[in-house]
C-alpha cells in the first residue's frame, strides 16, 4: 500500500446560526488511496457537501489537517494554491449552474488549459477536441453555448473540464443526482472508464446508496457532521451497523419488493 493520496484528519467546521454554534463538520477523518473511490453518504444536513468544499478550499476549515499528494494542502495560498488545484478537481451537481451561463463549450475547456499552461494558444483547439472526444462528445460541440446543449452533455463537458488538468483526485458532489436515469448510467460508466484508464481517485458525494454501491470502493456514512460508520461499500450497505446506515438502506426504493406475479 502506498501513501494515501488524500489524508484528512480532525476536520471541523462550525457555523453560528442565530447565536448558536453548530458544527457542520465535526472531527471528521478519512483517507483516499490513488485510483480509489470513497463515497460520502448521508441525509441532507449531514455535512457531506461541506466536507467537499473544505477539501477543495472553497471554504476554510476551523481545525484539522488535509494532506494531499504528501504535502500540507491547508498551508498553501495564492498562486501556490491555484497551481496545486490542477491536481484536485470537482464536478458539481447541476452543470448549468456550475458553468458560466454565457460561456461556450470551447471556453469552458480552454480556461483550465490556459491557466495551467497545459497547451499553447494555437494548440488548444486540438486539445479541446480531444477532451470532448475523451468524454464521449463530438468535437463539433465546441462552438455551442452551454445553455444550448442537453443536461447529460453539459455534465460530460463538466467532467472534461475537470480532467483537463490531469488531476489525481476529482470530487463529485452529487454529480449524477440531477440527471435522467438513462443518462446517469452512461455518466457513471464514463467515470469508471476514466478512473480505470487514468487512475483518478474520486471523492463521491451522494445521498443515494444505490449509486454509491454501484461505483464506490469504500463508503463513509455521515450524520450531523460526524462519521457514523465506514467500510467496504458493499459490506456496509448490505449490512449497515449504524442507525443512520440502517435508515438510509431501509428508505431506498427497491424494485425487488414488487411482487413477482403478473396479473
Amino acid at each position: 500500500m502506498t501513501d494515501p493520496l488524500l489524508a484528512v484528519s480532525g476536520l471541523t467546521k462550525r457555523y453560528s446560526r442565530s447565536g448558536k454554534i453548530i458544527a457542520a463538520v465535526d472531527d471528521v477523518s478519512f483517507h483516499i488511496e490513488p485510483g480509489e473511490t470513497l463515497a460520502l453518504a448521508g441525509p441532507s444536513g449531514s455535512g457531506k457537501s461541506t466536507i467537499a468544499r473544505l477539501v477543495l478550499r472553497l471554504i476554510e476549515a476551523d481545525t484539522g489537517r488535509i494532506e494531499f499528494e504528501g504535502s500540507d494542502f491547508l498551508s498553501l495560498n495564492g498562486a501556490a494554491l491555484r497551481g496545486r488545484r490542477a491536481r484536485l478537481q470537482m464536478v458539481f451537481q447541476d452543470p448549468l449552474a456550475a458553468l458560466n451561463p454565457r460561456a461556450t463549450v470551447a471556453r469552458v475547456l480552454d480556461d483550465p488549459l490556459r491557466i495551467h499552461h497545459i497547451a499553447s494558444g494555437p494548440e488548444r483547439p486540438r486539445r479541446i477536441a480531444a477532451l470532448l472526444e475523451r468524454v464521449g462528445l463530438s468535437s463539433g460541440l465546441a462552438g455551442r453555448a452551454i445553455h444550448e446543449i442537453s443536461g447529460g452533455q453539459r455534465q460530460r463537458v463538466a467532467i472534461a473540464r475537470a480532467i483537463a488538468t490531469k488531476p489525481s483526485l476529482v470530487v463529485l458532489d452529487e454529480a449524477v443526482s440531477a440527471l435522467d436515469v438513462s443518462v446517469r448510467a452512461q455518466i457513471l460508466q464514463l467515470l469508471l472508464d476514466l478512473q480505470r484508464e487514468e487512475r483518478i481517485a474520486y471523492l463521491f458525494i451522494s445521498h443515494d446508496l444505490g449509486v454509491v454501491r454501484a461505483i464506490a470502493h469504500r463508503v463513509t456514512i455521515l450524520e450531523a457532521g460526524r462519521i457514523a460508520e465506514s467500510g467496504d461499500a458493499r459490506s456496509v450497505i448490505d449490512a449497515p451497523q449504524s442507525v443512520i446506515g440502517k435508515a438510509l438502506v431501509a428508505a431506498a426504493p427497491r424494485l425487488s419488493r414488487i411482487e413477482r406475479d403478473v396479473s
Partner: peptide, 15 residues
C-alpha cells in the same frame, strides 16, 4: 431501459 438504469441496493455493481 428505465428498469435497467435503476440502481437499487440489489443491483449488480458497475464497479
Amino acid at each position: 431501459v428505465l428498469l435497467d438504469a435503476h440502481l437499487g441496493l440489489d443491483a449488480e455493481p458497475l464497479l
